[in-house]
Amino acid sequence: MIPAGPVVLRPLAPTDAEAIVRACADPEIVRFLPRVPVPYTRDDALRYLEMAEEDWRSGGAAFAIADAVTGEWLGNIGLKPSRLRSTNEIGYLVAPWARGRGVATAAAAALAGWGFTHGVERVELLADVENLASQCVALAAGFRHEGVRRGAEQHRGGTRRDLVSFARLRGDSGERVTPFLPGFPGDSLTDGIVRLRTLTPADAADYLALQNLPDVVRYSVPPEPHSAEQVEERCRTAGANRLAGRGVEAVIMDAATGAFAGEIQLSNLIPPLGQAMTGYSLLPAFRGRGFTTRAVNLLVDWAFEHTPLSRIIAGTSPANVASQRVLERAGFTREALLRGLLPGPDGTRLDDLQWYRLRDAPLASRAFSRRRSGP
């Protein structure tokens, strides 16, 4: 047995079969573990127990994740060796009734440590690009983000899915990896008028319609329409990109109705400089109501409070007066006009009017900005 804080890793037993069957009916397990049969039966569970014994014979390891006090089955976890580059991979599932208690994090950290004491040099953990919970487990268990393996896993129906790759080496500290960009407190930001939340695949249709509006295309970089495939990719990877520190993609919503109103980003991060860029677009039906100014204030205030960022910049076309007014009301200061910075249509180059806001910007100017934005 391997002690792991609130749980213990113990040998699997035939008495675990019924609990395994109940857990494998969970939609999230079915969604992210394509090798789990549907429907999952007791015979499937018994075959899994046989396969676990085979894992031990082939140099791997397979455990039940169990309550440290009662011994109740809470999940499965295993370590499988790969002869390719002497890498071992952790795989696990946790029953829906055991989630939210740090079970997966404790088990993954403990099993990696156990592997290192048994001669393992490198342990990988792979998670579906949309499985943010598993990606958070990897970081919390001391695994470092390495990249995305495109189309690395065949899913149900024959489609291919991207996997996010994390790894721990024998010499790593194993300490929790804190994302540069944490999640929004309570999963959203709001001032009572607008609400921001992370972009998701469910937003693809609204996002596509927004990004292909003529005036949005005109001021995009580059100024080209988005394809459905591009938008689906952006929506699908937004959460994983935030955890990897690449940026934040958020939906602007009407707080009263929950309607999709627009989008806002924090991108082009340069951590050594403490700098990032913001950009945004809004549906015509919500313009003229201060929504964009409120969204910018919410996102920038969050960034200054919850990240090491000290400087947020933005760029506008010299002709985009509406966007310039948004930035002025949100406490940004005009900084420079960069000639020919941006790609334009048909090989032309466009000027970019740049703005900035600093972490220590005077509070009085921000309060004035909020009063002017209005509902």
Rank of each mutant, 00 (worst) to 15 (best):
25 A>H: 15
79 L>Q: 12
107 A>T: 07
219 Y>S: 08
372 R>H: 10
282 L>C: 13
142 G>P: 14
59 G>F: 00
358 L>S: 02
166 F>Q: 00
77 I>G: 09
366 R>S: 00
100 G>D: 04
133 A>Y: 02
279 G>I: 13
285 A>L: 04
80 K>Q: 08
368 F>T: 14
152 A>F: 08
11 P>G: 05
193 I>M: 07
182 P>A: 15
95 A>W: 02
218 R>W: 12
216 V>R: 06
254 D>T: 15
46 L>D: 13
322 A>I: 03
157 G>L: 05
159 T>Q: 07
167 A>G: 00
75 G>W: 03
25 A>E: 13
78 G>D: 12
230 Q>E: 12
10 R>L: 05
43 D>Q: 11
235 C>G: 03
43 D>A: 14
49 L>I: 06
161 R>S: 03
229 E>M: 14
202 A>H: 09
180 F>T: 02
237 T>W: 01
22 R>D: 08
29 I>Y: 09
132 L>G: 10
204 A>G: 09
78 G>K: 14
96 P>G: 08
69 V>C: 01
293 T>I: 08
167 A>S: 06
191 D>V: 13
17 A>P: 03
365 S>P: 04
259 A>T: 11
243 L>R: 12
207 Y>T: 12
232 E>T: 07
332 F>I: 07
365 S>Q: 14
64 A>V: 03
341 L>K: 15
223 P>N: 03
102 G>Y: 05
341 L>Q: 15
30 V>G: 12
330 A>C: 06
11 P>C: 04
192 G>V: 02
300 V>E: 02
181 L>M: 12
332 F>N: 07
111 L>F: 02
196 L>E: 12
16 D>R: 11
45 A>F: 10
353 L>F: 11
275 Q>D: 10
103 V>M: 01
230 Q>F: 05
48 Y>H: 05
130 E>T: 15
235 C>A: 14
140 A>V: 06
64 A>S: 11
289 R>W: 07
166 F>L: 01
199 L>Q: 12
33 L>P: 03
356 Y>V: 15
316 T>Q: 10
6 P>W: 13
21 V>K: 00
312 I>F: 05
304 F>N: 09
256 A>D: 07
79 L>P: 04
48 Y>M: 07
228 A>G: 04
122 R>D: 12
319 A>D: 09
3 P>V: 04
73 W>Q: 09
23 A>S: 13
343 P>C: 03
274 G>N: 09
234 R>G: 04
245 G>H: 08
215 D>V: 07
123 V>N: 05
153 E>L: 11
109 A>K: 06
